[in-house]
């Protein structure tokens, strides 16, 4: 059986909120290392990969592998019933028909119990390869969100160019063009404001801003975001969570337009 208690229901709410517009029906794969999810969007150009390690829960118990097939719209409806400060416990039997969600108030004696009917989702496991990226950029998540939101007002696509000059986000649209360049930057007092650029080769790729803006819904989960790029390889956008957990998005580059 699965029993996973999360001190902050809000973390799970934010994760589901960040992915629910990209993917609809997903398997939450539970085993003794934690709860993982991998799903592609309908157009097969973006991929979500979430890992909530067992250390993120206290306690965490999962005796055998359990796949919880959940519709994220349904899950969102139930998670709305949790207060941000509630403690969340996920429960399921070994061959479950439902997943149970229990919300406990830390301050009062309220206990709320909900269940969601599970779906049988036939989802092949995607082998995401270990990749040596040509360029890795760590930057404030809010900054990346702002750049994407600003540029989508002008264009559907953004080019991300990484060179020894820094990283340049540029777009061209009907009304004109826009570009934002960031250079490596260290803020001793506020390390969450740092921009770190590691590059082994210059990289230039173009991406659909619609997807990037969507990924940025995860900005509330982490102060920093990491962008990993290599020519002709999907971009990795990573939000690190506590206890080595993460939320990752992959996006295929646009080619030849």
């Amino acid at each position: 059986m699965l029993e996973a208690r999360l001190e902050q229901a809000n973390l799970f709410k934010k994760v589901v909120d960040a992915i629910k517009d990209l993917v609809q029906d997903c398997n939450f794969d539970c085993n003794d290392s934690g709860i993982a999810l991998q799903a592609m969007d309908n157009s097969h150009v973006a991929l979500v990969s979430m890992m909530l390690r067992s250390e993120s829960f206290a306690p965490f118990r999962c005796d055998r592998n359990i796949a919880l097939g959940i519709n994220l719209t349904s899950l969102t409806k139930v998670l709305k019933c949790a207060q941000s400060d509630d403690i969340l416990t996920l429960k399921a039997e070994d061959a479950p028909d439902v997943v149970e969600l229990v919300f406990e108030s830390a301050e009062s004696d309220r206990i709320s119990e909900y269940s969601i009917k599970l779906m049988d989702i036939d989802q092949e496991h995607l082998g995401i390869p270990e990749t040596d990226y040509g360029a890795t950029i760590s930057m404030p998540a809010a900054e990346f969100q702002r750049i994407c939101r600003d540029l989508i007002a002008l264009s559907e696509s953004v080019s991300i160019e990484c060179s020894k000059e820094g990283v340049k986000f540029a777009c061209q649209g009907d009304i004109g063009s826009g570009a934002v360049t960031l250079r490596q930057h260290t803020n001793v007092d506020k390390p969450e404001m740092n921009v770190e650029i590691n590059m082994s080769e210059p990289v230039s790729l173009t991406f659909s801003l619609k997807y990037l803006v969507n990924f940025c819904k995860a900005s509330g989960l982490s102060n920093q975001v990491r962008l990993c790029l290599s020519n002709e390889v999907p971009l990795l956008v990573e939000y690190s969570l506590a206890n080595n957990s993460h939320l990752r998005f992959y996006l295929a580059p646009k080619i030849g337009d």
């Binding site: 592609m40 157009s43 097969h44 150009v45 991929l47 995607l126 082998g127 995401i128 390869p129 002709e232 390889v233 999907p234 992959y250 295929a252 580059p253 646009k254 080619i255 030849g256």
Partner: peptide, 14 residues
């Protein structure tokens, strides 16, 4: 879009 999908397939299949 089909190009993008192909890139993804190639990436995932290694």
């Amino acid at each position: 879009k089909s190009f993008q999908t192909e890139i993804f397939k190639f990436f995932l299949d290694g």
